[in-house]
């Protein structure tokens, strides 16, 4: 995959989207922003499903300039796209070990990979995940950590779609670092300016339509550093609060 192209469709009220063809390349990070209900998740779904003017938005997604035939979409999407949705919990009634064994089987991965996935997940959650744990009984933080480690190591896809990392209840920057391997195309839905400024471009949605595409300006890059320091300060205060210490 060298280019993913989004061609305009229409807003919820039928008015055509006005942006030119939007071409995205591996190694790029894009933020997707807008009010709730503005169509952010739908844009992510359009990309995941490699739509061909047949979704409610009427958008067309091209891979390396070509349309994907409906019959092949599921297979191509499986191979190219990893999607971290807003889900905070697993629902399937299997153990962590069984889940990873089956997922490695689906993705043709080595049988010894599950142990490394659990080890990686345990670097971003303070509550250790054990292979014998029931998948659907993991806490929100454990589930999110395992989903992220699974996407990073088992899915290993060139396009990563992230729906709101902030709600994860885990270290956002560290989790993002795991997913944002160099050479991948990343789209991240966010309401957080700090996260949005990690991206070089941001896509703004309103009423179901892409209404603007902004490059990160020099001034915004400076602001990004400022927001980062304040995020770290917030994290440090959070740690002290959790330990029962005075915050000042």
């Amino acid at each position: 995959m060298n280019t993913l192209t989004i061609l305009p469709g229409h807003a919820r009220d039928g008015a055509p989207e006005t942006f030119e063809a939007l071409s995205l390349k591996p190694g790029e990070i894009l933020a997707v922003v807008g009010n709730t209900g503005s169509g952010k998740s739908r844009l992510i779904k359009d990309i995941e499903q490699l739509v061909g003017r047949d979704s409610v938005t009427g958008r067309l997604i091209l891979l390396d300039g070509a349309r994907i035939a409906p019959a092949n979409r599921l297979l191509v999407s499986d191979r190219l796209v990893a999607h971290l949705s807003q889900n905070m919990r697993f629902v399937l009634d299997v153990t962590v070990a069984e889940f990873l064994r089956l997922h490695c089987l689906c993705r043709d991965k080595a049988a010894n990979l599950p142990a490394s996935v659990i080890a990686l997940a345990n670097t971003i959650t303070p509550e250790p995940i054990l292979p014998g744990n029931s998948l659907n009984l993991l806490s929100g933080g454990q589930s999110r950590a395992l989903m992220i480690a699974d996407i990073a190591m088992v899915c290993d896809s060139p396009i990563v779609l992230i729906d709101e990392l902030e709600n994860a209840g885990i270290d956002k920057k560290r989790a993002f670092g795991l997913l944002a391997d160099s050479g991948k195309l990343i789209l991240i839905v966010t309401h957080d300016p700090h996260t949005a400024l990690m991206a070089s471009r941001r896509i703004i949605l309103e009423g179901g339509a892409i209404v603007r595409i902004l490059e990160r300006s020099k001034e915004e890059a400076l602001l990004s550093g400022e927001l980062d320091r304040s995020y770290e300060r917030q994290r440090a205060l959070q740690q002290r609060m959790r330990k029962g210490e005075r915050l000042i």
């Binding site: 971290l84 697993f90 629902v91 299997v94 889940f99 689906c106 989903m147 996407i151 088992v154 899915c155």
Partner: peptide
């Protein structure tokens, strides 16, 4: 399908 993770969906589809 909105209720489960991509990995779980892949497992169910495999099954």
């Amino acid at each position: 399908i909105d209720m489960i993770s991509q990995a779980e969906l892949e497992l169910v589809r495999g099954q």
